[in-house]
Design a protein around this nucleic acid. Structure first.
Lengths: 220, 220
DNA sequence: GCCCTTTCGTTGTTGCAACAACATACTCGT
DNA sequence: ACGAGTATGTTGTTGCAACAACGAAAGGGC
């Protein structure tokens, strides 16, 4: 088991390599390999272990009643998955988790993570903090996106997003981390329509932009 | 401080009244009253305490760059707020929290919650579990809604939602917890357009419904 | 019984944004 | 410098869903 690799994952962030070795036994760590298209977790089951992708990647797949399915998320190397279900005892998964290539997964017991281990090891505290931080961060990301996609008009979505970016950067001039296609996907709009709207907004004097550099023009 | 009331909140669920009294001092609990429209947390500040509404309610308000603002959420009695920011040290709030009436808030230190207290009290574990469960549940709720509002067509949104409901109820016949207006808001569509689409879907033989009772008709 | 309110379904109109198709950069390897 | 490939901006068309307005049905109070 590659403990060094784990030091760079969000879950084990701030925990040293030998501390991790110790911690892994606390958490009842189990490793397992999956072939492409093999199912890691199945919808309907309830779990108490989270998964951590050591190599390869997995997809979060939602199956609809009428047979069609939709890939809702993609979890890459170092990321964890199913933690939301593992944190709610008895909760049944509403989606499948499927290996989308040759993938190694590390399973960790959420129960053990959340009960102070008998040895009272110090890193335990740290991993709980990390866990909650990851969860909180996901919440904020989802909330933000939800807020931006709430408005029906394309312009309002852009204004909402740009407004938040300005706030986050603490300046009306900033660079966004998306190209046009990615931004369009994020806001759930059509790329060309968005490009069009952006240039209209520039004509209207609301914003100025060049590539990924944006400046918001206040009414002042 | 009304500790009995706290036993019925999600955060203190499963913890007895006298255990709570003990826990509150661990968590550096502080109580404060707010008048209507008074600001509880201000955008830009970074916090380490979560808030719990003891009476009244608060709004989550997002301020846009161009001056307009938008109420993004409403937190009622017994619910907690700002926990996502408190869980990420140094993270700055992107929204204001404003009392929308005469409101009493209980502040609890997230730092203390996440470090095993020197006395090693047992309820500590429980509150951490509750905290993570709340966070996980919010994540699942947001994810679901995000998934349903992702599709652009009204019909697909409905199919996505109904599909999930069927899965959650473990049956193709179920009752939804929304009336039409609420469902429309949840899916971010127009109510009348949705009503129209629902009856079309019934004509097409996809579903059968009466009021809030739905039945999904499989291709079989 | 009555009125009043709320909820739900229906229709027609209209506006916005998706879509397609193309033009114009920009990037990169050779 | 050149062409291939990608990213972005522009234009017109069209379809879908928001919107407004209305009617029917279902409670709820007196």
């Amino acid at each position: 088991m590659n403990t060094f690799f784990l030091t760079n994952t969000p879950l084990f962030h701030g925990i040293s390599e030998n501390e991790i070795s110790e911690l892994l036994s606390c958490l009842g760590a189990k490793e397992r390999k999956f072939k492409k298209d093999e199912i890691v977790f199945r919808a309907g089951s309830s779990i108490s272990e989270i998964g951590l992708v050591e190599s390869g990647s997995v997809n979060i797949v939602v199956n609809f009643y009428w047979g069609n399915s939709h890939i809702f998320g993609h979890i890459g190397k170092g990321q964890i998955f199913a933690e939301n279900y593992a944190a709610i005892p008895g909760k049944e998964l509403l989606c499948d988790v499927v290996a989308c290539e040759e993938t190694e997964v590390l399973f960790l017991s959420m129960r053990n993570m959340l009960t102070t281990c008998p040895r009272g090891c110090a890193f335990h505290t740290r991993i709980i903090q990390n866990m909650l931080r990851i969860s909180a961060q996901k919440n904020l990301n989802l909330s933000s996106r939800m807020m931006h996609t709430a408005s029906k008009s394309l312009r309002e979505r852009l204004l909402s997003y740009l407004s938040e970016q300005a706030l986050e950067h603490g300046s009306s001039h900033f660079t966004i981390p998306f190209d046009r296609q990615q931004l369009a996907d994020y806001l759930a709009v059509d790329r060309s329509a968005m490009s069009n709207e952006l240039s209209k907004m520039q004509k209207d004097g609301l914003i100025t932009y060049h590539k990924n550099e944006f400046t918001l023009n206040g009414s002042t």
